[in-house]
């Protein structure tokens, strides 16, 4: 290319770049769906309303992609929280077509519906539109002491790190995958009626530390959850495990934890 940007003799600038051509091709092969977004501003609204948008989507388009497209092009005021876009941060949990899911982990093509309705998660306070407050979830998570409790320090000049066998790790590693997205609390039928219930997220994390053989805080934790709004309010509906995007299976953790309280586990 010459200094003034002109192409040398014999070369021609293509009318459209390859990336533009690809974009046009993809757009022409895309399908269209209606995205219904719940809108609610607690400072000015008394009830939620829905805004509808027509969006193009591909086989790989996620619900979060669609929401962000609407936010960029049609309605900048949509309140939505997201970060990693790869089901790791747990920020974009919402009710998608009636079920709690991560928006970044749900493809529109998988929903098999011409209408995609997105609402804020149930059993959480709404900050705005699709964003909900996590204060209570974090508070209950902290309440069950989500860390290894020991009298002695892990690292001293005399001791080495605490060794664990692969079998020991298997007992809790599944529950260590929790990303605190809150989907389990949103699906839980007990959370729907009991505001003081500890919730499946915190109970599953209690099991994660109780089952860890490095931890010595079992009695302390069992005491925290053995209360009227604690572990006994779980009725094993299993909805928490159905919606968990990381395979944590909180229902299993809660029932195993109950085994400790009933004396079937040591």
């Amino acid at each position: 290319m010459t200094k003034d940007g002109a192409l040398p003799k014999g070369f021609e600038r293509p009318s459209r770049s390859p990336s533009q051509e690809k974009y046009e091709k993809v757009k022409s092969s895309s399908k269209t769906t209606t995205l219904r977004i719940s809108k609610f501003n607690p400072e000015s609204d008394s009830t939620s309303t829905f805004s509808e948008f027509k969006v193009h989507y591909q086989r790989w388009t996620t619900v979060l992609d669609a929401i962000l497209e609407v936010k960029s092009n049609y309605d900048h005021s949509i309140g939505v929280r997201y970060s990693c876009r790869q089901a790791t941060c747990g920020s974009c949990g919402m009710i998608i077509n009636g079920k709690p899911r991560l928006a970044c982990f749900t493809k529109i093509s998988e929903l098999d519906s011409d209408l995609v309705t997105v609402e804020p998660m149930n059993n959480f306070p709404i900050i705005r539109d699709l964003a909900v407050g996590f204060e209570r979830l974090i508070a209950t998570h902290k309440r069950i002491k989500p860390y290894i409790i020991r009298d002695d320090s892990e690292v001293t000049s005399e001791t080495k790190e605490f060794l664990q066998s692969p079998e020991d790790v298997e007992k809790y590693i599944q529950f260590a995958g929790c990303i605190k997205c809150g989907l389990c609390n949103s699906a839980c039928p007990t959370m729907a009626t009991d505001s003081s219930f500890v919730g499946p997220q915190a109970l599953a994390q209690a099991y994660r530390y109780v089952a860890d053989n490095r931890d010595k805080g079992k009695d302390e934790r069992l005491k925290i959850i053995d209360e009227p709004h604690g572990i006994w309010r779980c009725h094993f509906a299993g909805s928490c495990s159905q919606v968990c995007p990381k395979g944590v299976d909180p229902a299993m953790g809660i029932q195993l934890l109950r085994g400790y309280l009933l004396g079937y586990r040591k």
Partner: peptide, 21 residues
């Protein structure tokens, strides 16, 4: 609820089928 018949906890592998269900 006593912790029986739920399977054993194990490393979660996609597509994440809950063992307790």
């Amino acid at each position: 609820q006593a912790g029986f018949g739920l399977g054993k906890p194990s490393r979660a592998d996609y597509p994440y089928t809950p063992s307790s269900l």
